[in-house]
């Protein structure tokens, strides 16, 4: 083989190896399945072989069931303790039903982690405001855990969480613990509640109290309409759009920008996102059926 042919062959081997690493899954065993709500569980996974999955808060994986299929699911675990890979999965479709039904000992497949993270560290020295709606708390839990792991580096840390009903509140025990902390402000609100509910009822935006706009990094995740509404409120309060980060969701098949499904105009949500600066996606979110 000539020198250039050898080079070309080495280049090809490298390309193929990188490609296969992203597109061929690894088997992970379910260590534990914890029921969060009627339709949502948190799975703790460990690799069948090989090392644990290092990830950044806000990233996702393509989580699959052999013979059924895969879907993009945010990692909901602790980025400072990647040995336990956690996903909080809502049973809303064929594949997610199969995943949510997995029991301890079952084997799932994992590709990733993929996508951009929250960039929590960018908020160091300032205030961090987390606004979550519904299942949107799952991808924000790693951000909060990272903040708490390095709590002294930040000024105020606030979690505002809107859920549908008191029964739909995720991580309920952990939330109770967070509410008891003196270095963390936690407010939650539900859309529907019986009179026995002592908490707040209303939209999550109503929870936004006074902010120091220039010093605030806002991390927002929830249904797109909720994120638009929260962003409008934060902009109204003077938080620069560049300091508001949103986690977008679109259909995904490959997770690495090759299949085309997740395109939001020029953006590949899987690759350029899922976490975007608000000023990058606000205009795109305004276009119907984009």
């Amino acid at each position: 083989m000539s020198e250039s042919a050898q080079e070309a062959s080495a280049d090809l081997d490298a390309l193929v190896a990188t490609g296969l690493a992203g597109l061929v899954p690894r088997p992970f065993r379910v260590d534990r399945s914890r029921r969060e709500t009627a339709d949502t569980v948190t799975l703790t996974l460990a690799p069948v072989t090989g090392g644990s999955l290092e990830f950044a808060a806000g990233q996702f994986t393509m989580l699959g069931v052999p013979g059924v299929g895969e879907v993009p699911i945010s990692i909901s675990g602790d980025p400072t303790w990647p040995d336990a890979l956690q996903h909080t999965v809502r049973d809303v479709g064929g594949v997610s039903h199969a995943i949510a039904s997995a029991r301890a000992g079952d084997v799932l497949t994992v590709r990733g982690p993929f996508g951009t993270g929250w960039g929590v560290g960018d908020g160091e020295g300032g205030d961090v405001l987390i606004v979550a709606g519904g299942i949107g708390l799952a991808p924000l839990r790693p951000a909060l855990l990272e903040l708490l792991a390095h709590r002294h580096r930040y000024r105020t840390v606030t979690l505002l969480y809107g859920a549908r009903t008191p029964q739909d509140i995720l991580f309920a025990e952990e939330l109770a613990g967070w509410r008891g902390r003196f270095d963390l402000e936690v407010e939650l609100s539900v859309d529907y509640a019986p009179p026995s509910w002592r908490g707040r009822v209303g939209l999550v935006t109503a929870l936004i109290a006074s902010v120091a706009p220039e010093q605030t990094l806002a991390l927002v995740c929830g249904p797109e309409v909720m994120m638009r509404f929260v962003t409008t409120e934060l902009l109204h309060r003077g938080v620069p759009a560049g300091q508001i980060r949103l986690s977008m969701e679109r259909a995904m098949s490959c997770g690495v920008g090759l299949c085309g499904h997740c395109q939001l105009r020029e953006l590949f949500v899987c690759l350029d996102g899922p976490v975007f600066r608000a000023d990058r996606v606000l205009g795109l979110m305004a276009v119907e059926e984009l």
């Binding site: 339709d39 809502r90 809303v92 479709g93 709606g133 519904g134 299942i135 809107g162 859920a163 549908r164 739909d168 859309d191 209303g202 939209l203 929830g222 249904p223 309409v225 909720m226 509404f229």
Partner: peptide, 10 residues
């Protein structure tokens, strides 16, 4: 916005 029941299961 709450009329949309955004957090409901699809």
């Amino acid at each position: 916005v709450r009329m949309l029941d955004l957090y409901a299961a699809p």
